[in-house]
Design a protein around this nucleic acid. Structure first.
Lengths: 183, 183
DNA sequence: TCGCACATGTAACGTGTTACATGATTCA
DNA sequence: TGAATCATGTAACACGTTACATGTGCGA
């Protein structure tokens, strides 16, 4: 239970997956390899050390399962402290920084929002939509002042960037509406 | 001119920027900090060592400029070998791997395609669109076999992922058309 | 004289990547 | 017997992050 440096994204992704369902390191590797979470890297050299760190910090708890005929597996689940850390991460205020540099992480966070009350999700989505819309507005402003001699391909890539942020914002608004219809 | 390990994305981004225009480390920091290339991290602790590595490998060439009244700047431009490495990167075949895990890098590559003939860009875009469409098809297949008990928020995030890949594919197709209209 | 913009760097540290090592069980 | 799948790990290495250190000239 060592002093807790703030967890890496991989550690938080692992924590989230374990909160949904107890898993072994091998299970986690498969999730990262086969599902759309693939951008968070699998490979034993990342997973096992991350699990070790989480265990050392008292975030997860491993239990050996040798009921199966194969090599015994070590199945992890989050501790109370781990759950708390996870929830704190899920609830964290959305900053402009996050939207600019860590949009993927924000979406990962949202993916685990099933662990929170639906009220929290709605607030999260609202914050996300607002930050995205603000950022899009800024990008559009930047585009206006693009120097004429700027390379055309750079400009095209920039257009795509704007479009993606926009479509993400629309998605967030749509999800908010979906939540409101449900209640 | 040491044995050349394959360059990191940051190194290639730097190489591309220098190919567009000779710059100092400080200039590069500003580009990464103020433009939409912000996801590639600025900060002297990344830029200067990267420039050092590129110089050591004979990819870039630094020249001290003390015509200005301020502290002398070291302005870099790519060597012939650096340009070659850059072009090889820009032309590299697009793999499914790239689309899944490094879409950002692909877009960065496209942003520097002004350095190539427009024929190469069209081929790049075609490859990109095809890979994206194949990946979207696979994701849609995955979605069909989603277990019913899968957390709803994860599913929603997954939907956004599909949408983004789709919108990127549409962008690529649109850019191809734009190139064709020009010629 | 103080702070700011310009400008270049270094050192410690943690983490992901790659590659390797091991071990049990099942099936061809 | 050998390959495949299940399963857990370690070691070297390179890179980015953070924080620190330094130096110049200009304007308030």
């Amino acid at each position: 239970m060592v002093r807790s440096a703030q967890p890496t994204t991989l550690e938080l992704a692992i924590l989230g997956l374990l909160a949904l369902e107890a898993r072994s390191g091998y299970d986690l590797m498969n999730v990262f390899e086969s599902t759309a979470m693939g951008n968070y890297s699998s490979s034993p050299g990342a997973i096992y050390p991350a699990l070790g760190r989480l265990e050392k910090r008292g975030m997860v708890d491993g239990e050996v399962d040798d009921t199966q005929r194969l090599r015994p597996r070590k199945v992890f689940r989050p501790t109370a402290q781990g759950e708390e850390t996870l929830r704190a991460w899920l609830r964290r205020e959305i900053t402009q920084q996050d939207v600019r540099r860590n949009l993927d992480e924000l979406l990962l966070r949202f993916a685990f929002h099933s662990l929170l009350e639906s009220r929290a999700s709605r607030e999260f989505l609202r914050g996300l939509a607002e930050s995205l819309e603000a950022y899009v507005a800024e990008l559009v402003r930047q585009r206006k002042h693009f120097p004429a001699e700027a390379p055309p391909h750079g400009r095209m890539a920039f257009e795509l960037g704007i479009e993606n942020y926009r479509s993400c914002a629309r998605w967030a608004r749509r999800m908010i509406r979906r939540f409101e219809e449900e209640s």
